[in-house]
Design a protein around this nucleic acid. Structure first.
Lengths: 347, 347
DNA sequence: TTGTAAGCGTTATCAC
DNA sequence: GTGATAACGCTTACAA
């Protein structure tokens, strides 16, 4: 006997023991038709008050729970939104998820979560699954999907989509990103104010739009030697490796901008291993202010922002897009500089 | 015109422009009945190879995507699991979610996520929603739901449920928790080895089983003055507040166990504000080893564990419970002591 | 090996 | 105001 059959049998056994009330049961008990029962429960206007009460009462006594499945099949609306990220366990995406979930819940939507594990193929598979589930909308932080891939998969379904953090230029009904340009400029300017001339960058993944934008702005703002720009992914380990390279260099840079908190942590580990003191011998600033940023030694000078706001804004755009046809909109979440000690400030 | 009607109209417009292939379309194109088409696509055995090929081909050319909704309605299986936590953005739950998601995906299940925001009422609402969606199973970390509440809501549905971290004694088909008892004993013993006699505890929420267990074991292992035991929630702010109280006390304790990383961070902030040096003037150890634990000043002596393992194990138990009737099982995830400097070790 | 037909639990349409 | 009835898109007895 196959798994499916086993499960099926089990369901039926349970069903017999705990019969679940259906709309028909409610209608029967209230002495009306299922259509009337449906209308009563959905707050339809033109209905005799007495009828409505009878139905509501029947529903309550039978502990009636409408089947979201059946309703969705009929109405073509699932009130479910697909959420796709490269890694839910990363603080950034976790916070964005939280923000989005809260907003969506307020508008009556549920979240179906897919973790793509930094893999574009799995991202694609995730989208397929979500579309098969007829989600009403999509919230995506892509790890680098090609525009054509996205359009072939999703656009033909015309499922409203909003990107955040990892975006595809011009795709979808909206995009929410951090103000990467301003953030990098704040950091560069601050280091320059401290008198630094040889500034390096731990750039972060160049397959993600956030990494690309930060690098681009850095190049615009700083005339750095190519070897001061370290292309890498986002992990602590990447930061450590790049940090060692940077610290071995000669003439070496005097300051570095880390494109993420993890990269900064890795850099700090490398510096500690080599006995290089921060900020005395080497200054460090970060794009991203982790919540323990002022408890590190030294405390981190960083560009901070409201992470859950990213999710909230994305959710807002999506809700609009799902409820009516709207113009594509791009939103930037503001960032601010938080001065602490790793840059050389007194703290 | 109501929102629902607007959405409905929009759907219909889209539907006309981008007709989606249904099983009937596939069947027609392949020149067979829908039943045969269904069987072909589901890998049913007794079928002429030629027929199968024709159907598969038709499905491919029409870019057929089966409707998960319709299938679920018919089979009473959604292959969806509900995941309920007090706060997804917390590193612990985010990691657990990641682990669970990965395992569930391997078994073909999707995750529907609900964040209860530390609120038992919202937890309950979340469960209702998930049950309305006919989820096949439930993974819950409760912030303190009463057993009767849970049973009234879920048990009658007989939806397999596995608890993790925040559990309800004896409820559900399984429970996965950290080895809180062993963790606290490791920390206590280590402090005692350092010669401490007045040991305090930042206990964590007593509405969650993790907090309760840690406090209970602490009481068994340490004969502490009542004022050395600080009942609080889990936030950094709680840790700071309790930290100040502890440091004002006289005679004051010489060491403290923080029940979570956040509480430890709060304590460190309080100590820093008062100029109390750790570990020289006051030792600190933590239940929970944050990933930046060795980059703090001082680095944290902590009880560590594999967080995503919690989610994975819970998912494993749940998958078993969904596929056959099984005994209730309780699993403990092992913990280990990580010696660093906040306790007074040399590091 | 394949087709017919019933039905999963709702809601939209069209009568009355 | 309310009720019949036909979908929504699929799976599965049962029949052929």
């Amino acid at each position: 006997m196959t798994l499916r059959q086993r499960v099926w049998q089990r369901r039926n056994r349970l069903r017999n023991r705990f019969p679940k009330a259906t709309l028909a049961d409610v209608a029967e008990r209230a002495g009306v038709s299922t259509s009337t029962a449906s209308r009563a429960l959905n707050g339809y206007a033109g209905l005799a008050p007495a009828t409505r009460e009878a139905v509501v009462l029947a529903a309550a006594t039978l502990n009636f729970r409408p089947s979201a499945l059946a309703r969705s099949l009929r109405t073509r609306q699932t009130f479910t939104v697909g959420f796709v990220v490269p890694d839910v366990s990363s603080p950034f995406y976790a916070a964005a998820l939280r923000g989005a979930q809260r907003k969506l819940e307020q508008s009556g939507y549920r979240v179906m979560l897919m973790d793509a594990d930094q893999d574009v193929d799995r991202e694609l598979a995730a989208l397929q699954t979500l579309l098969n589930h007829q989600v009403d909308g999509l919230l995506i932080a892509t790890a680098g999907m090609a525009r054509t891939t996205f359009e072939d998969t999703v656009s033909s379904h015309e499922t409203p989509t909003v990107f955040f953090d990892g975006v595809i230029d011009g795709a979808g009904q909206g995009a929410v990103t951090l103000d990467n340009d301003r953030g990098i400029r704040l950091l560069v300017d601050h280091l320059v104010d401290h008198g630094h001339e040889r500034i390096a960058l731990l750039a972060g993944s160049q397959r993600e739009s956030a990494g690309v934008e930060r690098l681009r702005t850095f190049r615009e703002a700083v005339d750095a030697a190519p070897r001061y720009v370290k292309l890498c992914e986002w992990s602590i380990e990447d930061g450590r490796r790049a940090g060692h390279e940077l610290l071995e260099d000669s003439p070496r840079a005097t300051a570095v901008i880390a494109s993420s908190a993890e990269l900064a942590l890795g850099f700090m580990a490398a510096a500690a291993a080599r006995g290089v003191r921060i900020p005395d011998e080497f200054a460090l600033v970060v794009f991203d202010d982790p919540y323990f940023g002022d408890l590190l030694e030294p405390s981190l000078t960083a560009v901070g922002y409201d992470t859950s706001l990213v999710g909230e804004q994305a959710a807002d755009l999506l809700v609009n897009a799902m409820q009516s046809t709207v113009e594509r909109r791009a939103v930037r979440v503001p960032v601010t500089l938080v001065r602490r000690r790793s840059c050389g400030c007194d703290g």
